[in-house]
Amino acid sequence: MLTIDPVGLVGSEPFGKNGWILNGASVVGASHYNMGVENQDSIYWIQSNKNDVGILAVADGHGSKFHFRSNIGSRIATKTAAKMLYNFFSEYQVNSTTISSVKDVIRYSLPKRLVKNWNDNVKSHLLRYPFSHSELTKFSLNNNSSFLQKLHTNPHIAYGSTLLTAVLTKNYIFIFQLGDGNILIVDENRNILSPFDKKLQYDGHEQNILPLNFTNSLCMDYSWLEFDVGAYAHVDMVPRLVILSTDGYLNSFKNESGFYKLGIDYLDILDNYGVEYLQSKLQNILKETSLKGSGDDISLGYIYKGSH
């Protein structure tokens, strides 16, 4: 049976033989709240006991003047990814024997299909709700002619969003990431893995810096080529907790090690106090973090395996 849990509510039922629990929350950032701007992030999950599959997706709509429908773009992204990946991994039971035959499909074809489905769903939304006069007027006032030309050529830029997805199956965890945001995996020995974090490289000529908030996006041409994809077999690494978060969380910490500490801290909260306790506190934790830190929207989704 396919169950779709509403976001942020207490009490996702455990699924799969290991009793996995999916949950999370998304809050509007302190600065967006003060400006009356709605949350540009989205979170969505699907789980199935029958197929032993859980899918968790978070997305961060860009929110800049070019991406004026990015809150919708991020919602489309999480739902599209969760449903598409659920269908795929319910149909193909990936195990150590079959992994080699679907490796390239997972690495290349799934990101390509994710992007195609997102674009198809954005196109449908745009057909139902064409850009209004006021949206276009505002866009023209805020942008120069080169951006107007770009919007004309590719109206989907209005919906630009990142996408992070984790798929938990009986034998594997698969993770997919396009753009900003972070994935942390904590194993049974409390080791923390941050699969796609890129250290900025010094190329010998010019220091590389990263002004906040320039990111890869679903609305970019050939964005599927920019996906990071990872696969981890349970026999190699037994995960206890998988965390997906939008970049408003990382940007709230003084340094990256402060962010990585989240992995163990959340695992301890879940082990010692339980899922219901965390869910009752999570929105406030994220709101307070945003207020004291980045001011940005923050979403946190997690897949947790209880200790008992």
């Binding site: 600065s31 540009q40 961060d60 709509g61 860009h62 929110g63 800049s64 003047k65 070019f66 991406h67 990015s70 805020n142 120069n144 080169s146 951006f147 770009k150 830029i157 630009g160 990142t162 900003d180 002004p211 906040l212 908030n213 320039f214 990111t215 890869n216 996006s217 609305c219 970019m220 041409d221 970049d247 001011g295």
Partner: peptide, 18 residues
């Protein structure tokens, strides 16, 4: 103080600070 997220390939077209 409030840079907006913006797709990476537009970086050359300008700042993400409005």
């Amino acid at each position: 103080a409030r840079p907006k997220s913006q797709q990476k390939d537009y970086e050359s077209l300008g700042s993400n600070v409005d």
